[in-house]
Nucleic acid binder design. Structure first.
Lengths: 253, 253
DNA sequence: CGCAATATTGACCACTCTCAATGAGGGTGG
DNA sequence: CCACCCTCATTGAGAGTGGTCAATATTGCG
């Protein structure tokens, strides 16, 4: 069906070891013993289902979460039932870093499809990182990478039109799936048009129309959740050729 | 003139001890000896002047920077001389966290007015944080706080109209100045309308018109860089009453 | 003092939002 | 297993916020 395979429990365990640790350690210099120590504090959960919350806005902060398989969205709910989507999290990605500061979650995290999620108690991770220099370094890098990523989104929202935003979104999903070994050109979007729109600062209708336009232009095939990118390079071009930052007129001296 | 006092060198030194360390340690449990150790790795620079760069996009990452007095903007330059402003940094605020991951700066940092800046070599800070648990914790908090802050900006750009954005900007500046002991209602904006516009995802003209409108509505007095907030509460109301997130229709069940 | 950069203001228009109607799935219960 | 319903997606028409272009201050700097 989609790329959200229902994974067996054993599968989760194994995957967790490779995937969570990949996220947390990357190719950094952790030796086998260190990896074991890290692995020992990671909690594997049973598969989470569509609609489940990892945490809600306002709750106390205990753990970080790593997406093993499936996908998760983070969002800020508003009183009237609306929401501002902050991000989509694919396999290998970390959730909850913004809650460290005040030890309280500022956003909610909801599972978009059947997913395997690993939980990493932060207190223990923090303690461990005091004794493992390369883990501490990796933590700094992870946090920093998150800042970089949000910075990119700021630039996107600050200076790009609807077409560029959707192209950028598709390219980003494609890149991230590819990095985890999935197809870069054929995938299922687990989020709704509404959620995509909120994330990109666009109305649902605009997102829908853009999908249709891209389809008509032969850039992709789309049917509901299923997307097949025909002209990935073309989409990249849209993203890159959009240098109409505000302040364009000012020429460097 | 403005709130950018030309500080004497001695002044910088003292201020650095209080201000940089405030940013880095906050009220966390560092004892006197620990503070000395941290203080020992902080480099005080001579006053930086308008237009000076702390670093440029693409440069290797060495240090974090703390604004002591004055202000700094971070931005992504584009080939055609335009730029996307990412943030404004006021006294006590930290710059460069996004460069840790790839050990390379992804944005440029330019001084907006005569400023005192402290430099903190990251390698040494990182080493020190291995031996001081509360410093490590503080580092995690700082990085996390930066993520939270950018998350707020994402929500702003994703779901607010021009008026709400400028109101939010003014309230934010006001709050941050107040926290550092400056007036919350009377200040000089060191950045141009162009830079504000870029930061908020608006055209310069829109920013200018909004200043005029706020002025006409009696919310503030503005003359060029000098702003005096008359109705700070009113501005806050604009920010808070703007719950028109996309997805408004969906009611929580 | 004069030029260049910045700000302000106006007129126009386009991109995107809003409103509305229709269609297509997916889930639930009979 | 089918019918119904509800949510989600698509498409169209119209309107509005904010962008673009342009002209005119105003400021600051050399």
């Amino acid at each position: 069906m989609t790329n959200n395979n229902i994974i067996s429990f054993e599968h989760v365990k194994i995957a967790c070891k490779s995937c969570t640790l990949n996220s947390l350690c990357l190719p950094m210099g952790l030796d086998q013993g260190d990896v074991e120590k890290l692995d020992a504090i990671v909690r594997r959960g049973r598969p989470a289902h569509r609609g489940d919350h990892l945490f809600r806005e306002g709750e106390g902060f205990r753990s970080l979460y790593v997406v093993k398989t499936g996908s998760v969205k983070t969002y800020i709910p508003s009183e009237d039932g609306g929401e501002q989507v902050l991000g989509f999290h694919l396999p290998g990605e970390l959730i909850g870093l913004d809650a460290i500061d005040e030890e309280r979650h500022h956003c909610s995290a909801k599972v978009l499809e059947t997913s395997a999620i690993c939980e990493v108690p932060f207190k223990r991770l923090e303690e461990l990182s005091l004794t493992l220099p390369s883990l501490q370094h990796q933590m700094y890098r992870l946090l920093s990478k998150e800042i970089s990523h949000e910075t990119d989104m700021l630039a996107l929202l600050g200076s790009r039109n609807a077409e560029e935003r959707l192209a950028s979104f598709l390219v980003s999903i494609s890149d991230r799936l590819l990095r985890r070994g999935f197809s870069a050109t054929d995938f299922y979007l687990s989020m709704s048009r509404n959620e995509i729109g909120s994330y990109l600062g666009l109305a649902v209708e605009t997102v829908s129309r853009l999908f249709t336009r891209f389809h008509d232009e032969g850039r992709l095939k789309v049917e509901r959740k299923h997307v097949e990118l025909i002209d990935l390079d073309g989409l990249r071009t849209i993203v890159e050729n959009s240098d109409h930052f505000v302040n364009k007129r000012k020429r460097a001296t």
